[in-house]
Nucleic acid binder design. Sequence first.
DNA 1: GTCTATAGCTGGATAGAC
DNA 2: GTCTATCCAGCTATAGAC
Lengths: 211, 211
Amino acid sequence: MSNFNLPMSIFSKISFKDQAFKLRESAILDATTSILGDKGYDLMTMDDVANAVGISKPSLYKHFKSKEELIGQALIRLIDGAIDFLGQIDKQLDPAEKLMVLLEWALRVRLQGGMPFLPSTSTSVRAMLMKNLSYITRILKLNSQLEKLVIAAQKAGQLNPDLPCDVILFSYYSRTCDPAVEYLKTFSKMKDDAIIEHMLQVAFAGIRPLP
Amino acid sequence: MSNFNLPMSIFSKISFKDQAFKLRESAILDATTSILGDKGYDLMTMDDVANAVGISKPSLYKHFKSKEELIGQALIRLIDGAIDFLGQIDKQLDPAEKLMVLLEWALRVRLQGGMPFLPSTSTSVRAMLMKNLSYITRILKLNSQLEKLVIAAQKAGQLNPDLPCDVILFSYYSRTCDPAVEYLKTFSKMKDDAIIEHMLQVAFAGIRPLP
DNA sequence: GTCTATAGCTGGATAGAC
DNA sequence: GTCTATCCAGCTATAGAC
């Protein structure tokens, strides 16, 4: 935190503990992410997570005071990753290209065992997330950036200007959690790169201007 | 069944009972469908269903011997509806038009409170369904009909012949459970007809031949 | 066939020793 | 902070009376 740049000799014990704590927290979030991607919110149990990390359930609860908070944190980390990635994208790219690069990133994250970008469609999960203020804050931030990109791309004639902005935006979100990805991997045994290429092609053909 | 066309005077008692039984069974499946669409597989409880129908849980278990069977039957009824609908589509339509009409039907069913056409992506739900032989049989039947339509449409130049057939087929399936539908309804307050129109437009623009 | 009541289990969360 | 052991709510499924 605030002592990152101070000499270790003074704070070594504290910072070591802190580091270990952060590391374990990160390991917990990794496990949560992977299990969420596999089983989904409802079927993921706190025992699953604790066992995957190799700690006991009470220890898990020292880090996250409830299942809801744990999942909220995992989603926040994911959204933050997206916002970071968006900030690092080559400024030279035009809006539609930026959207494509971000979607590629999201699909790749998912194919490498992450959870889908959008949580379940289920009412209860959404209700749970809506109570989580820091999650809402992040998602609104990301959403406003994406909305600007969509509108700019429509103005520039890179995306279909006849479609309502919302239709493009929500379709875009949906592509990040498109089950076709899983089907292609499971049933067609397609390589990750081929899956991503085809998903991008279909997704953007759907929202580009009509000929 | 076999006595549908026989005089009621002879079988009235039996057929009446049968009818009532069928009616209740149908009501149970209706309730299951609606609750599944709302809460999803894991959160739907047998109490929910029994209460919605207005019967007790043991009575529910007289009709369906487990939660898995109940959900399986609800899904089978849905698939059968799709197969029936497909059989009734105007034979004059070309393959791509048939696919479009069917997708419209599926989206409309969903918007009217039904469950999504494809069940959850979750591993456990899929595992449950894979043990259900009559479900598998139906889904394979529907799948083979749709695959034929896709291939025919590609040959006729109505769908992009450069895309693997699987990519089109799985993308098509995914559109039936696209969360963008819910988002447009919830956040954009869009009318059902407008949602369907836009979803169809985006979906088919994505898989049509490139200009 | 329908109900009330309950068995049996699972999973979220915690008490209390170390 | 970490564990073992446990509580308790809520769920599937059923026994047994009517």
